[in-house]
Design a protein around this nucleic acid. Structure first.
Length: 960
RNA sequence: GCGCCAGUGGCGGAAUUGGCAGACGCGCAAGGUUUAGGUCCUUGUGUCCGAAAGGAUGUGUGGGUUCAAGUCCCACCUGGCGCACCA
């Protein structure tokens, strides 16, 4: 072990004449911090050994305990650098990692960069500089800023998604996904070669009745494309002319605009790459049960996947059967009309000549409406009758078929059956267009009373003001073909009975419907991973063989994508790679001799690189695999020793809630494919997810609405002014646009990194958003100053601790603090952990001299939070080397037990006095002492208590 | 509309199982150090009454359970987040 770095302190220079030379101030803090950061680097303090491969180090592993994989959501290396809001989560994970190392865990903790994507490309377009250059500069700057914070990363494991050595494996995983299919019988992904073998052997036949053996190779490829988990589709996609690319459903906001740039998005049929994430709908929902995530995030994922159970029902019509999805097949007897989306393919055939004009007009109007108007549910429902009818399969009656824009082509089948008596929307629609509303449930008397109408029975609903939504016995719900629900109350059995009948009679079947669509995976951009795909002369896609990866992103000056007028829905995407003829046209030998191919010119979406990055930290230099299976198993394998259904994955993953349905859903999907194919041992990538809050800050705008720096704002009588002009105040996430960003560099200069770290951790619980107040930072600065002063003479820099044993009270407080800090740190409650240590320190400052043992314990306990100053004190206390692997203090249970206990004594719930009794006093003794207490006796005024409750160790309550 | 979360001093926030509300920090006040300011140190600080002792009151609102409620139950109000004409 190397010696601790010695001080080359020039800290005195920056002080004013009167200030002591060795006071803990910003200059001294900076000196300490820079020295220890170099020490950690030079001594490879935070390098973590693997069990196998290049990073294996059996000797180092010997000294470490159980593994722990702590992960931050890796950042996008933006050009503007960090502000103090960014590292909140990183400080939390660093503190936790340092704490767990001291608890003996072998902690893997590193940081990479998610560097492909739109902002780098847009910045490059603005400056004319290649995105690779700006990206590398930004990464270097962010590395510097993070390093200055003292984060204990294993830097050997850092990756960038833009590095060809990394994206080689992103392409490899794409290739693997392309070369696999979902076997619904086995309920897992399997290699496509096994599907081909089943077709070849005849054990599996084609659904359309063709004979596999008779197909041409191209026809076979088309069949396989319908099975592959990555496939080219011609379906409607989200085209964003303003960005010049298509985007995924998850990247479109509720008002139909792009997540990035806020441009309009249009539904267009285009040929694009898709990922068959829908094959995993059930598992993505079911396996949420195995995860230690918040209910909020789980709910968001469930909601996004949108599983609903119901039935598909076929309504025969002149244009063929109209299929609807319903969650309430039990209400079929009340279905008196149908509504199709205006774009529904059967509309033309159903429309009668006399309705043709009205239908055409309505469809035109609907097409012209943007998503906002179309989905504005405050507006009255409109619709047009097609003139056509369909047959309700349970009643046999002809029901009119309408079109209305509140029915969406993108959900279910794009057609609904309307049950006006039981659905408020259908009820309003039926009333407006004079369609029959027969009752199929008998509402209870209270419902009629509530709406102030006379109770009705039978099918009459003429007096009903609204639909009846609720459970009630079915009425008028029988037919002559053996289906009867009349009298049944239970919805579940009504649904089951109806489903069975539908299935038996060929009218439909029980169905589970999902909101989730397949993942649109291609983008018409430059700065992303190229697809490892070429097309032959028949336009059949071939993946590039493994040994020919990576497909390098070609260098070019022409990286600017073609963008369009944001409203130009008819424009066509044009990838920058299209222009590179020399690159696009290529001669390759894919196993059947050299042939001409055309490269795919799309790139992958930003999310691709983040779908598996945590695994590359495990084995960053492996050239043969994306991760060595043994190494993956060590770090991410299921911890069945903890609980039998543990899914494996990262032990603690910290990041913002904004990735709830994007990154976290995509990464789970990829991970499950890799699991199915046997490439990883873990079912899930992230066993425990913790969502940190955001740092918020006030922002000010002048009367023109332009953001004003908070530094220029003064407050008078609850109003805010900048240069005597009134400004308005708002509340928002810290950032550049609101001019309310505070740079960590400012904090390093004024207080040092340890103070910044402590302040951010003390502001409140890690999962809560909190306001930044620069003026509050000084509190933690003063704490570190006081702590420093307990151990070090401010004038001489000499250690001033006493070797005398601490007094009893100090010992008890120390061990109480140790006990509490352990618990708080285990649960990521750094704010309360800091409070306990401040209490202990405040006690120690009142002593004549600080006992060495107390200062040592304090230095160790505080080290995860404020590592630099604690390392310095540890060295001053005479220890060699770093304290990073010193055992974290453990409380002596004997010192946690008090000899005497102070009881508050309540009379009728109000505290009237206190008694101190021996800790082992029985209840009668405590009761007697309580009744004897002076103020209690006075309050009771001689009256005999009705009841005395003694809560052992807690309190006494006397009921008078 | 549906789902999730949260409301505690001037501010950020503490308070395992119901058991002394306001830990810790900021701010503020008074005092000390200092030529002064700043720094640093000490003490005080929920609100109301009171010189004090002490008393009353107090965790968004209204009810309830309990010897005892910030904590549990019911209804409501406010704010935040997510989804949203989802059939």
């Amino acid at each position: 072990m190397a010696d601790a770095p010695t001080s080359n302190s020039s800290s005195g220079e920056a002080h004013t004449a009167e200030a002591p030379s060795y006071r803990y101030n910003s200059a001294l803090a900076q000196d300490i911090e820079l020295r220890w950061q170099s020490y950690w680097d030079d001594n490879k303090t935070f390098e973590t050994p693997n069990t196998a491969g290049p990073l294996a180090d059996p000797a180092a592993l010997e000294g470490r305990g159980e593994k722990l994989f702590v992960l931050d959501m890796f950042p996008y290396p933006s050009g503007s650098g960090l502000h103090v809001g960014h590292p909140l989560g990183y400080i939390g994970t660093d503190t936790y990692s340092r704490y767990q190392r001291m608890r003996g865990r072998n902690v893997l903790y590193s940081m990479g960069f998610d560097a492909f994507g739109l902002p780098a490309e847009q910045y490059a377009v603005q400056t004319g500089q290649h995105p690779a250059i700006t990206t590398n500069e930004n990464i270097a700057n962010m590395r510097r800023q993070l390093h200055r914070l003292g984060l204990s990363h294993d830097k050997r494991r850092s990756i960038s998604t833009t590095d060809p050595a990394y994206y080689k494996w992103t392409q490899w995983i794409f290739r693997t996904i392309f070369e696999s299919w979902y076997d619904t019988d086995a309920d897992k992904a399997r290699p496509i070669s096994e599907l081909v073998a089943e077709f070849d052997s005849g054990s599996r036949t084609l659904a359309d009745g063709r004979n596999w053996a008779d197909l041409t190779p191209t026809e076979k490829e088309h069949v396989l494309a319908d099975y592959r988990l990555a496939y080219v589709s011609h379906a409607p996609v989200n085209w964003c002319p303003g960005l010049g690319t298509v985007v995924a459903n998850e990247e479109v906001t509720a008002d139909g605009r792009s997540d990035r740039g806020n441009f309009p998005v249009f539904k267009r049929n285009m040929r694009q790459w898709m990922m068959r994430i829908t094959a995993y709908c059930d598992r993505l929902i079911d396996d949420l049960e195995l995860l230690d995530w918040t209910d909020a995030i789980k709910a968001m994922q469930r909601n996004w996947i949108g599983r609903s159970e119901g039935a598909t029902v076929h309504f025969p019509s002149a244009a063929g059967p109209i299929t609807v999805f319903t969650t309430r097949p039990d209400t079929l007897f009340g279905a008196t009309f149908m509504v199709l989306a205006p774009e529904h393919p059967l509309v033309d055939e159903l429309t009668t000549p006399d309705q043709a004009e009205a239908v055409a007009e309505y469809r035109k109007a609907a097409a012209a409406k943007n998503e906002i108007d179309r989905t504005d549910d405050t507006k009255a429902k409109t619709g047009v009758f097609t003139g056509g009818t369909a047959t309700n399969p349970v009643t046999g009656e002809q029901v009119p078929v309408w079109i209305a824009d509140y029915v969406l082509m993108g959900y279910g089948t794009g057609a609904i059956m309307a049950v006006p008596c039981g659905d408020q929307r259908d009820f309003e629609f039926a009333r407006k267009y004079d369609i029959a509303i027969p009752a199929i449930q008998q509402p209870p008397a209270e419902w009629f009373a509530e709406h102030d109408i006379a109770a009705t029975t039978g099918s009459d609903t003429s007096t009903w003001p609204v639909a009846y939504v609720g459970d009630a016995p079915y009425v008028n719900s029988s037919n002559d073909d053996g289906l009867s629900l009349d009298g049944v109350v239970d919805v579940a059995s009504g649904v089951a009975t109806t489903n069975a009948w539908l299935e038996a009679n060929g009218h439909g079947q029980a169905t589970i419907n999902f909101k989730l669509r397949d993942w649109l995976f291609s983008r018409q951009r430059y700065w992303g991973e190229p697809f490892p795909v070429v097309y032959d002369e028949h336009d059949v896609a071939h993946v590039i063989p493994e040994d020919m990866l990576p497909v390098l992103l070609p260098d070019t000056d022409s990286f600017s994508p073609r963008t369009f007028e944001p409203e130009d829905a008819n424009s066509d995407p044009e990838s920058p790679l299209d222009r590179l003829e020399d690159w696009v046209n290529v001669t390759l030998d894919l196993g059947d001799g050299p042939k001409q191919y055309r490269r795919d010119t799309n790139v992958m979406p930003q999310w691709a690189g983040s779908c598996w990055y945590e695994m590359r930290y495990l084995d960053p230099t492996n050239e043969d695999r994306f991760v060595d299976p043994e190494v993956e198993k060590y770090w991410m394998g299921p911890r069945t020793d903890q609980r039998p259904d543990h899914p494996g994955g990262v032990d603690l993953y910290v990041g913002g809630v904004e990735h709830a349905v994007l990154h976290l859903l995509y990464a789970r999907f990829w991970h499950k494919v890799l699991y199915d194919l046997g490439h990883v041992s873990s079912k899930e990538p992230y066993a425990r997810l913790f969502n940190q809050g955001y740092i918020m800050a006030y922002a000010y705008r002048d009367q023109r609405g332009i953001a004003v720096s908070p530094d220029d704002v003064t407050e008078r009588d609850g109003e805010w002014f900048a240069d005597d002009a009134p400004v308005s105040r708002e509340w928002g996430k810290m950032g550049k646009s609101l001019k309310n960003a505070v740079s960590p560099d400012e904090m390093y200069d004024d207080y040092g990194a340890d103070t910044l770290r402590l302040y951010e951790m003390s502001m409140g619980p890690l999962d809560q958003s909190r306001p930044w107040e620069t003026r509050d930072v000084v509190g933690m600065y003063r704490f570190l100053q006081r702590f420093w002063r307990t151990a070090v003479d401010e004038d001489t820099g000499e250690l001033v601790v006493t070797d005398d044993a601490p007094d009893d009270e100090t010992m008890r407080l120390l061990h109480k603090t140790i006990d509490a800090v352990n618990t708080e740190m285990d649960n990521l409650r750094f704010n309360t952990s800091i409070a306990k240590m401040i209490e202990l320190n405040n006690h120690v400052t009142k002593l004549d001299a600080a006992p060495r043992s107390v200062v040592e314990s304090m230095a160790l306990m505080l080290a995860p939070l404020a590592p630099h100053v604690c390392e310095e004190l540890w060295a001053k206390l005479g220890h060699d080397g770093s304290l990073a692997y010193e055992p974290f203090p453990v409380a002596d249970p004997a010192l946690l037990v008090e000899d005497t206990v102070e009881y508050p004594v309540q009379v009728n719930g109000k505290v009237r006095g206190r008694i101190t009794v021996s800790a082992d006093a029985d209840n009668d003794t405590v009761e007697a002492a309580a009744l004897a207490e002076e103020n209690v006796a006075r309050t009771l005024d001689g009256a005999a208590p009705k009841k005395v409750i003694v809560v052992p160790g807690r309190m006494v309550n006397i009921v008078a």
